[in-house]
Nucleic acid binder design. Structure first.
Lengths: 107, 107
DNA sequence: TTTACATGCAACCAATTGGTTGCATAATAC
DNA sequence: GTATTATGCAACCAATTGGTTGCATGTAAA
């Protein structure tokens, strides 16, 4: 989970995910074409995405094909969106109460 | 969006969010109690959460109350989960096809 | 009206991160 | 078989990050 959120924290890695979203199964070379940095830099980013299990690779001869794996995103959703969404209205209510208390005191 | 994902990338900041989820509207001093670091370090983390708009603050006298704002999480969901979820089965299918192609070639 | 409390600001430091370059290896094309 | 292509590995570097400490400021309590 930590690896997934850290992987998503970088703009270049998010671009790579979007690139694979547009066209799944691209090689390292193809993915390099979309980013303005060296092949090795792109490979490092892809390495982090692999560690986070957001990207799965398949070797075809000397080519490394990269595929999206959206499952970890689903886990992020459950842990960091759904859980908080359930209490969404409550949170806004808490804030409102806080504001009102503030008003009473500073009056 | 970038600020939100970067804010979520750090374990300490995620702990702070969970802490506020348990008990909304805590002061800086209270939040410090849960993390093993200096008050200033916690304040910095909260500053990033504020910039990401995940936390909203209300001043009550000399105390700074911190409230959760789950809205940015919802935006993360729409941009980075729902969008990918829609093509989830397709992505798995792409991967399977890739594996089969690989098999045919290496055979 | 002192004293204590809650917080902010800023300088500094070590570790991590995002990038580079150079060289090595394995698969395909000629 | 030789050249070319696709990738990996490792050392290195600058910028960012996560943390510290010291001091300043404003609010509340004695």
């Amino acid at each position: 989970m930590d690896a997934v959120l850290k992987a998503l924290a970088d703009e270049s890695r998010r671009k790579l995910l979007d690139q694979l979203h547009k066209s799944n199964g691209q090689t390292l070379g193809e993915l390099c074409g979309h980013l303005d940095m060296s092949r090795q830099a792109v490979a490092k980013h892809l390495g982090l995405l692999e560690i986070a299990n957001l990207v799965v690779v398949v070797w075809r001869g000397r080519e490394k094909l990269h595929y999206l794996n959206p499952v970890p995103l689903q886990e992020v959703y459950e842990r960091w969106v759904a859980k908080y969404e359930r209490h969404r209205l409550q949170a806004l209510s808490d804030l409102k109460t806080g504001l009102e208390q503030d008003k009473n005191i500073t009056r």
